[in-house]
Design a protein around this nucleic acid. Structure first.
Lengths: 230, 230
DNA sequence: TTCATACTTCGATCGTAACCGAAGCATTGT
DNA sequence: ACAATGCTTCGGTTACGATCGAAGTATGAA
């Protein structure tokens, strides 16, 4: 009867509260076990297992066996981008959960979006990269310039290594709190990893927040100075 | 328990096949009556009415009374952008409906995305505007330059009129068939309207396809020449 | 081998929401 | 005034899927 893609299946997958909770938690970027996800969603293990099987069949999550654990994660960047887009829409329409708790300001400042940096810091980083001619943006695509490649080398990121993967190096991702774009793709992931490796920042245990140390924040802002207010 | 926006409610709204069908049809940009939407979704009028009430309560559609008809349409541009984003994801993952029928090539060439031009023609139009310095793109935001404003005046579009509205003039929208951006916003809407007013193109009766006349296509390509293949 | 942990599968229950037909309003046309 | 059209509301049925506990499977530890 209909033309075009079928959005009902995806909507139905996301539409169950238990599954939506799991996906939201997985947006934190960590791979989690079925037991952890069950706890996060407030359901028993057997129910969680059933939900995870559906999410996997739908291609939204993937599992990796490791010993007697099974770690679940979002299937790929695309899923993360799609979910962040939905969250942006939901946030803008007032579909908010319970209360914007005390963690909220921290989330808006810096948080992980599946595997890369989002929030105010993420948006400003991309702003700066674009303003300095290190990244060029075209629609939702983005590309690293030669100057940008040099800058990344200075930070300690091997761009040629990233290029050899099949994933796109640069992508933009719409930020639900800022409603502007930040940097995703393998470069976005590498940058966040680097910040954590060097001890500038650490992931929160129980939320998507990224906490910068005072020193780390200074060095981050040194690398990516704030643009003048527009 | 949870932080951040609640995507489950929106997912559930979209997750019902009947509602998803209605939304897909409304992506055609026309305002339709409850009876028409019931037919499109293959359900009775009473069921359709119930679904439409839910979609309206969720802010996805709005209704306008006109005589004894009630016309339903997507609530605003944001909804259209969100749905197009979901469709892009769905198409890329193979969540396709039945068969990509004969209408499919026409849809990929040019179709309406809620109220603006999408498909190959839409993507190329934005490409050309950017290449000529008529539109500048920054993430998902976009802006019309002074040169661009002159060009629009030449086409017969009153940009100052558009600016006086509260809607953004320019936005980018991710195209599900091309996986690149095209132009949305009030300017995107005005351009499509203009193409139809001038008789260069017409909307298909029963799908989202936009059909250009031979003459219209020539004039369109004259205004927005194809960029050299990259 | 035996036990413990991590997870899946099975079977059964339960609640919700999708659905339809009939009846009720509202608006327009005659 | 009366009929016709367009849609909503109501009542009742039905079906699906979310949920849980218990039993089954796999992996690792003792």
């Amino acid at each position: 009867m209909k033309e075009g893609p079928d959005i009902a299946q995806i909507g139905a997958l996301i539409g169950d509260p238990a599954r939506a909770n799991m996906l939201t938690v997985l947006m934190g970027g960590r791979a989690l076990t079925a037991t952890e996800l069950a706890g996060a969603a407030g359901i028993t293990l057997s129910t969680a297992s059933s939900h995870l099987a559906k999410l996997e069949a739908g291609g939204l999550v993937s599992q990796r066996k490791q010993g007697r654990h099974r770690y679940f994660a979002l299937a790929d960047d695309e899923v993360g981008l799609m979910l962040e887009g939905l969250m942006g829409f939901a946030a803008h329409r007032g579909f908010l959960r319970a209360r914007p708790g005390p963690k909220d300001p921290a989330l808006r400042k810096a948080r992980v979006c599946y595997n890369h940096l989002a929030g105010d810091f993420g948006v400003r980083m991309l702003d700066r990269l674009v303003a300095d001619g290190h990244v060029s943006v075209d629609g939702d695509d983005a590309a690293l310039t030669a100057e940008g490649e040099a800058k990344m080398a200075g930070i300690g990121i091997d761009v040629t290594g990233l290029r050899s993967q099949r994933r796109p190096v640069c992508r933009t991702c719409l930020d639900w709190s800022e409603r502007r774009s930040h940097l995703a793709g393998s470069l976005g992931e590498a940058l966040l990893s680097r910040f954590i490796e060097t001890g500038w920042a650490r992931r929160s245990e129980d939320s998507r927040a990224i906490h910068f140390t005072p020193k780390g924040e200074r060095q981050f802002l040194d690398l990516f100075p704030l643009p003048e207010r527009r």
